[in-house]
Design a protein around this nucleic acid. Structure first.
Lengths: 195, 195
DNA sequence: TTCTGAGTATACAGATCGGTATAGTGTGGG
DNA sequence: CCCACACTATACCGATCTGTATACTCAGAA
């Protein structure tokens, strides 16, 4: 990526997230990045493509941010809670308005829009992450547990973004912790029964 | 509200919800409603005002839709679960793209925007509803329980709107049911201890 | 009957939208 | 030396944006 393109994408990302996608024009992006519209269209081809790269890059940054949290945790339970820890820290610095994918989905409804797959793909990835981690705790209830964790997590992002109540992500983490304790207890009782 | 204004607001509501607020212009609203722009501006004064009334009216419709569900339930536990039942039925018919307040918040970030208070007010109302209903189950844990129910509910709306997995609202209802069983059990044990 | 309110139709203002065109600058590598 | 590349500057395109203006119709009520 050329320096101009880099600056343009950075500027677009901030503007899109803060003001919404349709509310931001290419002239503003160019001006904010110190770049001409010509450069924008030479590098990206269309505004639509800038939107796609904005979402894809943000998802990539989030995954890179998340990875060390999960890797540092030593138990299956801690790995799941680490996702909430990462979300809390990420939200503090980058996500005052909630999930960029959810927000983008509010403006990009057409499934044919190239950004649509980035959005749904990110959510599918998160669900698969929770479900995969849940498998190490309660293999037979992993699907159900993963979905519940997903609900808590998504709800927390919304609650945080709309400032419904303070420390929403920490609250969700607490509920997830209780949920995992129950699941672990249930799994071990089932284990004993089988013996 | 005059007949023309009624048609305009109905058309605007559908368009705003389906395509997003910034993506819909007043010309389109007027055309779709079979009304001239003159009528639009005579009745509403500005597009901003149409947005405000769209959100306020939708909230009002939701509350009217919800009320009989809650009233028909006979136990505190059933009243809470009735909210999820109402949400599921509402979402099927009116809410394929998730919560209109959350979606509007993605486009209207400025707290000075008159729509902002409608959005945050609706969320505050829902939190108060859950907390109030939770008080009849576990008075001392009502605040915490209300917030958890809020997280599950908001998460379910997102999961439904983005089609993360099927029957998200029913799943959330199931988790809420389990949560309430735990809370009831804990409350009755605490009651016995106090005796 | 006259007056008012709600509506139509149409045209326009000024700004901004996404996107393109032309022309020129500076820089690094073969 | 020269060429490819990244970029600047500026002007423009047609379309659309919110909002306003003029002129007219029609129904119902005082």
């Amino acid at each position: 990526m050329t320096p101009g393109a880099r600056r343009a994408l950075d500027a677009a990302s901030t503007l899109f997230y803060d003001r919404g996608i349709h509310a931001v024009g290419v002239d503003l992006i160019a001006a904010e990045a110190g770049v001409t519209k010509k450069t924008l269209y030479d590098r990206f081809g269309s505004k639509e493509q800038i939107v796609v790269e904005y979402l894809a890059a943000r998802d990539e940054r989030w995954q890179a941010f998340l990875a060390p949290y999960v890797e540092a945790a030593t138990t299956p339970r801690a790995r799941i809670l680490a996702v909430f820890d990462a979300s809390r820290d990420w939200a503090e610095a980058n996500s005052a308005k909630g999930c960029s994918m959810v927000n983008a989905h509010a403006e990009v409804s057409d499934p044919a829009h190239p950004a649509y797959q980035v959005i749904t793909g990110q959510k599918a990835w998160m669900l698969a992450l929770f479900t995969g981690l849940a498998r190490d705790i309660a293999p037979r209830r992993a699907a159900k547990l993963g979905r519940t964790l997903m609900l808590l997590h998504e709800g927390a992002l919304v609650a945080h973004g709309l400032r419904i109540f303070p420390d929403a992500i920490d609250h969700a983490r607490g509920e997830a912790a209780a949920l995992l304790s129950d699941a672990l207890r249930a799994a071990s009782t089932a284990e004993e029964k089988r013996r």
